[in-house]
Design a protein around this nucleic acid. Structure first.
Lengths: 216, 216, 216, 216
DNA sequence: GATGAATGAGCGTTCATTCAT
DNA sequence: CATGAATGAACGCTCATTCAT
């Protein structure tokens, strides 16, 4: 499963800046942290359009203008949130998937980690996935979160195919997308309908494994 | 394929009004038709937030106030558009899927009809699918378009399973969602990347059929 | 003196619009008139930067938004005021100058009419003259008010020179500017210092006439 | 030409402070000097309203707060610039005019020195002349730059008249203003239109000398 | 003396909606 | 039935200034 570990290392730029001058003082960093924390909560709970910079700063206990000390504008703040969230999500899923030993195990590991993340950070996953409905898409690093996941799945499956664990006659680029699409839609549905996580994991694993496993 | 034909008969409320007084004259109906036509084009091209009622009425050659003669508010207009679009999309897909004779044929028929629709009505499908990012979700009839499609697929597969055309040991509710999710994501990706429609149809059909076909 | 009568016919576009559709209803016209009237007063009394669109609409007894129904933005409103004022000033001065029979008479007529206008519309003349400190200059029609006046004086003097009323060996383009500059500065000074109008008119006429009159 | 040499000795207050405590260290003086240098450049290039204290301190390589260590507020800084500029301009013009031997020579000397200064310090002259459109006029020492120049011209001409070099029957207070007005307007026009400096100097000298020279 | 993060009143502007005509 | 002028709450954002460090 090592294939998953060459994770995405993108868009960390605004998360940490090694230039000591730009990194800012402790106070500055603390303000930014609080703003981003509040912004995250509000973007998730109310959505982008219903969240005003004023609301964010007020809830963070700061003045209106402070917002623009840390973010170019509202959109910039949203993107900082999205990048943070996507990095976090990627990390959470990769950590678990990396330890998987077989195809079923991997599918399960990914599903479980997604489910865990979604439970522990309600709404964040969905916000991250719908980021491109708010920001002109090309401003986000390399397409949708789902698309990037799909690409990783594709690469991963290609590797697995070489080892004979997955049928070789697939268009892995498309199949990668198909799988993450299946996971996404089935998961949102299950989650929303309050269905048991176990049944979801079982059904999806079964579906994906059957599709991919090579036949004699 | 009859399973698919009990289409959605929901939320027609604002499409036709049975109150004889309000049903209106020819002129009234004509105004509404033009408004909705323009609204559809604008919602698709510019998005919900970038479309103002003024823009719609102006492009329709009507006065601003006329908008509120036909729609309670902007959201109501958007929902009318969404309902119209969803009905249209459902119809377009059902028509073609209904004639399929086997699982592969059906998968292909659905894919082809989706692709055709998307090509002939650029943006409409995506707008319809992202409707819930604009309207509080519970106001839309019975969840997401994708969810409803997933439910239909589920029912359909259950029927097919009884006939032995599909493996019986699936949780069809979840698998229905998984399939439409796979289709959606793989399709958007292919479409966006300008990949050939044939390769998409082939890959997706292969994937879905392998997953579902019962093994000896 | 007919030279002065081919007055400037520029930038009337926003003062009156012959397109019946755009001309608007009586109510619309009335609103615009009131806005412009108040705007004029405020721009003159407080200056451009200290006048907020809100102040204008409030004093005009209208809602904030109404401002933007009639003017693209604050600057557009200012320019409408400037154009109105300049047209008015031009008219006021031309009317009187047109009846002059000799050089001294003409100088006096112009001075008197400027003085009259300045007294009856306090501040307007200065606002009109300093318009280019507020608007990027090239957006105003053909340079400064003073420059345009200077050009007219130049043309006028050229005509007079041909008739032998004015010395022929002048660079009339520059002299035109010099004269209006002299008038402007001497007038503002006199006006501000509360000096008698008669002494101003006498001194300036004397100065200009002596400079221009041909010697034997 | 001694008349011109009793230059303006006003409003030096913020240029040097005789309070020994506040006069400050070398470092302090150096900071102020740099701020004023940058401020001057920016006020000239961008104008008062488009220049923020932040821009000044940043370009000067100082912290934002430092600005208020040296200037009460933005307006105070602007006035310091204006006073500096006016003193500089006065000096530049007086130096040259002081050596003139006759009326034509003097007029020419003044024109040449103004032109030279304007070329060597682009925009400064204009900024200095329009200072009162930015600062409430009465805060500037003794009226407009142009007015003060006009007053000096008046005094000068009175002296010349006593010597019989200039006609005696003028209201020199007004004529002084008229002359600087003529110079200002003709010069700005020529400068802006890219006309030759020689033709300007010739035309203006001719005009002024003819007006003032006593007749037999 | 110097700093720069923080401030918040205030800016110009938009737009969904109303209502007199 | 249709109109379009009018509305005003609300928006995202700026910037001269303060003050704790």
């Amino acid at each position: 499963m090592a294939g998953l570990t060459h994770a995405l290392h993108m868009s960390q730029s605004s998360l940490e800046d090694n230039n000591p001058a730009a990194r800012g003082t402790k106070r500055r960093q603390e303000s930014r942290r609080r703003l981003l924390e509040v912004a995250r909560r509000m973007f998730v709970e109310r959505g982008y359009h219903a969240t005003r910079p004023q609301d964010i700063t007020k809830a963070a206990g700061l003045g209106h203008g402070t917002f623009y000390l840390h973010f170019k504008d509202k959109q910039d703040c949203f993107m900082a949130f999205i990048e943070q969230a996507q990095a976090e999500i990627d990390a959470a899923i990769i950590d678990r998937a990396a330890s998987a030993k077989s195809l079923p195990e991997m599918v399960e590991a990914v599903l479980v980690s997604i489910y865990d993340y979604a439970e522990n950070h309600p709404g964040v996953l969905m916000a991250a996935m719908n980021a491109e409905t708010v920001v002109p898409a090309d401003k986000l690093g390399g397409g949708t979160l789902l698309q990037r996941w799909g690409e990783k799945w594709g690469e991963l499956l290609k590797t697995q195919a070489k080892q004979g664990l997955v049928a070789k006659d697939f268009d892995f680029v498309i199949i990668g997308q198909a799988i993450v699409g299946a996971i996404h839609q089935a998961s949102s549905f299950s989650f929303e309908r309050g269905r048991s996580r176990a049944s979801l994991v079982k059904a999806l694993t079964q579906f994906i494994v059957r599709a991919l496993t090579p036949r004699k």
